[in-house]
Design a protein around this nucleic acid. Structure first.
Lengths: 335, 335
DNA sequence: CTGAAAGCGCTTACAG
DNA sequence: CTGAAAGCGCTTACAG
């Protein structure tokens, strides 16, 4: 109602000291009739405490969430879940978007700590020594999501297993040559682990003709690379893409060049975006449960705040989503 | 470095009062050698002011951004632009996700005002009398994005013109019957204005056989509705969808039923999502410039804060993206 | 269980 | 231009 109802107004109306109101708000013991009067005053004013005024509180009830961008396919789902989980538990999420500016990302760790957040979740693309220093210079607990952090807590996709599973599957389909359209190794989780899994799975199936092509996370680059690869005279039988988005680039290029999927070339992605199912043919891909991951991150940071024990590294499971983008060759039975 | 460098540490090291440091930080006149010493101390401590401690400041340098969800196709782009624009201007964006909980959305207006934000941007799905009351009860300026707000400032897509343009185009292609797969009229911008435009455009082209089908913004519902519509014996020649996502449902259903696009049925969307171009055939659609819109919102709220004049309603332009999902019939020349 | 006082890290008149 | 003091809206020991 009135813009400025404060704890003082509530205290005055309830006839108690503001410290008593504060105690009531924080669930500490208050005599029953005081509580009743305070509650009435709160309702009268539609009062809600200003979370930013808790300057000297032990707990600010705010959690900083540092992310490299809003605009990735999984980020919105991740944010939705984190936000909901944290609010449900009475915390205020504070989102800091770095647009992949690493210096700003590192600085944000310190900034948020100084703003007195109770914990920090950092959605990481890669982790540098500066990250480690920043984390070590503060007492605020930090959870890394998406990349492994050897000096602290992290939660990430089980890229190794997932890659291996996909690699084996492709080998079992009878495919004999593969091209990996991948991202740089700066990204340990995707650039290294995920690829490592794929190679392992392919090798188990006896596929050794593997070529590497470098792209990045963008659709535009993927189109360029795919165009080049598909025009090779002896192009690989299957193009294994580091992400679904890269696979979209292959679809685009294949259509431009009049190549059919999967008759002329097989394609796989990684991500399992909703849209991948709408493509013709539907994209064969792997989906990680981003919602679970986000939830575990939020849960883990709250556990750290409470001083409860948590695992140093938690891996997220995956699901294989068979589409129609892989040619069924002679089945090959392994082992 | 040390977690807790405050304005006091800086003041002590620089040998001035903390009020002088504060003035320096806020760009007010300070003697040159004081400034130098303060600057050195700031650098020494890697000091950065805690934005939440400005409890008694006239300007908090924070802007509240209320949104109905992170998980829509345009939201990430919108957030990216707003975030960048506001930070560049020295403001801290504070995102509040309501997950379309209208009561919470309305409450957030008051909450943010009480938290002392300098301005509020509300990404609206629809505007109720409660919104109006909330806005009128505070002095903080509020900008509505996406829906027209008769009692205040709003920035939204020019749905009427865009719809009309698309409707005319379809009529000019020689299509004679149309089905609109639409959302409810609760959403004035999309549910009413956008459809109004389409109908007007179709009418100008002499298309009067128009049928309405109700869906919602979800892919799942779109699939269901599309399945039903496509199985009708005399299905419309073109299905005009309220959003690209709904059009994806039509693609899915058409493939299931063995119908070809555009030979058996034409389809159009609205949104111009990146993915729409990857479909086979590419989706014919309309794109609004969400980035421009976000930028104008941020700029407008800052103007309001400065007391500068702004237009009550600002409309965002669009671009027609012809794909291959509309059958080219006998061209019809209008007028 | 409760109130008065001090404090959180800033900003803001107000003298000088 | 600058410092001492008061204040923003909360929380937190500390007596009682």
């Amino acid at each position: 109602m009135s813009e400025g109802a404060t704890i003082n107004d509530v205290a005055a109306m309830a006839g108690v000291a503001k410290s008593t109101v504060s105690r009531y708000l924080n669930g500490k013991p208050v005599r029953e009739d005081s509580a009743r009067r305070i509650q009435r005053a709160i309702e009268h004013f539609h009062f809600e405490a200003n979370p930013f005024a808790r300057l000297s509180a032990k707990q600010s009830k705010m959690i900083g969430v540092i992310l490299p961008g809003f605009d990735s396919t999984v980020t919105p789902r991740v944010l939705t879940v984190m936000d909901k989980y944290l609010r449900t538990k009475g915390y205020w999420p504070l989102f800091v978007n770095t647009e992949s500016d690493i210096a700003f990302e590192v600085a944000s760790i310190g900034n948020l700590a100084r703003m007195n957040v109770d914990g920090i979740i950092l959605v990481a693309s890669f982790i540098t020594p500066a990250h480690r220093r920043a984390v070590e210079s503060i007492r605020t607990p930090v959870v890394f999501m998406g990349q492994e952090f050897d000096a602290g807590i992290s939660i990430l996709d089980d890229n190794l297993s997932a890659g291996e599973m996909l690699g084996r599957h492709l080998a079992e389909q009878g495919l004999r040559s593969a091209g990996l359209i991948w991202v740089t190794e700066d990204d340990i989780a995707v650039g290294i682990r995920r690829k490592e899994g794929i190679l392992r799975g392919l090798a188990e199936g006896g596929v050794t003709d593997v070529r590497n092509y470098l792209a990045d996370f963008s659709y535009a680059t993927a189109c360029d690379v795919a165009r080049r690869v598909l025009q090779q005279k002896d192009r690989p039988e299957v193009l294994i893409c580091a992400t679904d988005r890269i696979a979209y680039g292959v679809y685009k290029a294949a259509r431009e060049l009049g190549l059919r999927i999967p008759e002329d070339v097989s394609v796989t992605g990684f991500g399992g975006y909703d849209t991948s199912e709408v493509l013709t043919p539907a994209l064969t891909t792997i989906r990680f449960n981003a919602e679970d991951e986000a939830c575990i991150c939020a849960d883990t940071v709250l556990k750290l705040i409470q001083g409860e024990p948590v695992s140093k590294t938690q891996l997220i499971g995956y699901r294989f989503l068979p589409g129609g983008s892989v040619r069924r060759g002679q089945p090959v039975f392994l082992k």
